[in-house]
Amino acid sequence: MSQTAQASSVAVPRRTMRQWLKRPSTIAFLMTLPLILLIGLLVLYPAGYAIHLATLNKGMTRFVGFGNFEFLFGRETFWMVVKQSCIFAITAVVFKAIIGFVVAHFVHNIPSKGQRKWRGMLLVPWVIPPAMSTLAWLWLFDPSYSAFNWVLAQFGADPVPWTGDAYWARFSVILVNIWIGSPFFMIMYLAALKSVPDQLYEAALIDGANWWQRIWYITLPMMRNIIAITALFSLIVTFANFDIVRILTAGGPLDLTHVFATWSFLVGIESGDIPLGASVSLFMMPFLAIAAVIILRDVVKRGSQA
């Protein structure tokens, strides 16, 4: 019957059009069309265009192949950026995960009546726009008026060059990142902790397991998925971080705290060498792709389980 309807409608194009528009797959396609356009034009196309840009010379007039990459490999600053990006991301994520795990346990320990209040307070760093809170840290780290140094001075300690010395500056950017990011881990781990059945702990207690064994043999295995996915997630965000380093040290002292994002901004936008900046930011791609593939595998796996 539908065949005859279709056959008769061929003669009247308007009805075909209307029928085509009524097909679920057409409606679905139209509903997703803005999304497809957005992803295609503003994410996929620029990503591909970045690869094209990276093969041009500074004036973007001539094809230089791998010239930009060869130039980067020969520069000491580039290797410093690679090293610092890895140190920054890995150290920050490890500490964020540990602090988040510990704080989540403390929140989980207290009576559930008060948990909401504590959780609310502890998540504040994540809610404040990073640019704003980093300004507060910049002021706390001020070379002459640092409030931390004032406290240290009360104990007779020497002032700390928070953003002036290379090692302290690295410490400072990581500290600020940990401060902003660990509440996120805390929330994720707290949600995971709540999903671990109490009976497991009760059974372990009866078997005489101490707190360390309970964490090692129950909590960690039960939370393994969420720990991994949160860490990888945060690794991507931290690795591509821009705000904190840009505001706190702007890459200094002596380019020692530059990460990929801040250095590519300096090279590509501020110094006007767009192809070189694109090449720098492209180096993030393999790191991010590996993390993304692992996350995706996990998400798909759990999706099929559900």
Binding site: T32, L35, I36, I39, L42, V43, Y45, P46, A47, Y49, A50, L53, M60, I236, V237, A240, N241, F242, F260, A261, S264, F265, G268, I269, I274, G277, A278, S281, L282, M284, M285, L288, A291, A292, I295, L296, V299, V300
Partner: peptide, 24 residues
């Protein structure tokens, strides 16, 4: 595929796209 693509796009940081977008 599109649903997976949406998730992958979410993982693409803005620090990767700002230079090509600027040029575009």
């Amino acid at each position: 595929t599109l649903a997976t693509g949406v998730f992958l796009t979410y993982l693409v940081p803005e620090t990767l796209l700002f230079i090509p977008l600027f040029k575009i």
